[in-house]
Design a protein around this nucleic acid. Structure first.
Lengths: 204, 204
DNA sequence: CAGGGAATCAAACGATCGTTTGAGCATACG
DNA sequence: CGTATGCTCAAACGATCGTTTGATTCCCTG
């Protein structure tokens, strides 16, 4: 573990890894603080409780992820020449960029766990802090797919969300071949997911 | 809890509910046996350990689910006039039938949890016992989508799996309107998922 | 009716959990 | 220099975990 980072950062990084590997319940504070190289009491001192630590793990990544998503969306939102692919790109590319920077894909696995857990408290936290992002994207999807009823649109967005979360949490993610650069591999993956999502959203 | 069922069945039913609600770690044997109305020691007596109980929860549902899937697949497999929708129907309909019979949708949530957990032991158990089903469906998809490379096919099947698991675990599942019968609502949902999956699998 | 294996029971086992405590250490300010 | 202040530390707290034990009850068979 990087001993130059602050105690809080080291805890957050170790927590992200262990939450991805063993789940929120499965990862104990003793494993976690040992991996981070800090004292057991440091979690409660700096974050208050284990639950607050979980929230901070989400906040740290989702703050930048959603900022990037909204920035990308604002560039294409409302324009007459915007395509469905443009909006999906704004949604998918920032998440994949997160997955590429070292430990980033771990966070998508943590997010997949949060979806699988039907924990009310965690869902409310995510909804309160980051629901507006989904709302903005949904509005733009609705504009580009006027043929779909609200019910139909929600259905398809939900299915696409499931597919993307599943894929980006690293399940069947095709391994990068050694003769392909990291950047071009990511570009291929983005194109891949966009094509799938666009087909699922806009099929007749 | 149904006091007429056997102790093993009552444990399995209560376990399915609590595993869906709180996860495999989060649901304790004390909560579980109390909900089932049996003694704490009954789990270890009848199943050997908590891990074995988890496996039995999967086995009970997947045995019949996969039998139905393979039976439906065998009716359309290899025929010249079989369509993609036919194969998807064979895959989706049995799962949705499971979701409809009372506590069945709980099992899809348990399955979604199993996907989110990257637990090696559980994944190996599922692969060993039920991997052949996915292999048979994959072979049939490959036959009907000869244009796709193996890599491309695996990608799309993985994305579809994520979408279906996500949806059937009851996330955004549209509530049945009171003026629609259960049977016709299920029929609509099957058609819905098939259309989405077909679009995602076969798009150009 | 007597005997015996299967099932259930209350109770306890050691281990591990999240959290709290109070002493000890560092650095910065009057 | 003395003393706040922020942080780290080992140790302990009570609670809960999965599992085991040994006695007791149940029910079938000979």
């Amino acid at each position: 573990m990087n001993s130059s980072a602050s105690t809080k950062e080291r805890i957050l990084t170790a927590a992200e890894l262990l939450f991805a590997q063993r789940g929120f319940d499965g990862a104990s504070l003793r494993q976690l603080t040992a991996a981070a190289g800090v004292n057991l009491a440091a979690v409660n001192y700096h974050f208050g409780s284990k639950d607050k630590l979980v929230e901070e793990v989400f906040r740290r990544r989702l703050d930048t992820l959603n900022a990037h998503r909204l920035a990308a969306l604002s560039k294409v939102s409302g324009r007459a020449d915007t395509t469905l692919d443009d909006v999906l790109d704004a949604f998918i590319r920032p998440a994949l960029a997160l997955s590429s920077d070292g430990s980033g894909s771990l966070f998508m696995r943590v997010l997949a766990r949060a979806f699988a857990e039907h924990d009310d408290h965690l869902r409310q936290f995510l909804s309160e802090n980051y629901g507006h992002v989904m709302r903005q994207f949904t509005a733009e999807f609705a504009r580009l797919l006027p043929r779909l009823s609200r019910e139909e649109l929600y259905w398809r967005i939900d299915l696409v969300t499931g597919a993307l979360t599943h894929a980006m949490s690293g399940f069947g993610m095709i391994q990068r071949k050694s003769d392909v650069s990291e950047a071009s591999h990511r570009e291929q993956t983005v194109a891949h997911l966009i094509r799938f999502a666009a087909a699922g959203l806009s099929h007749p």
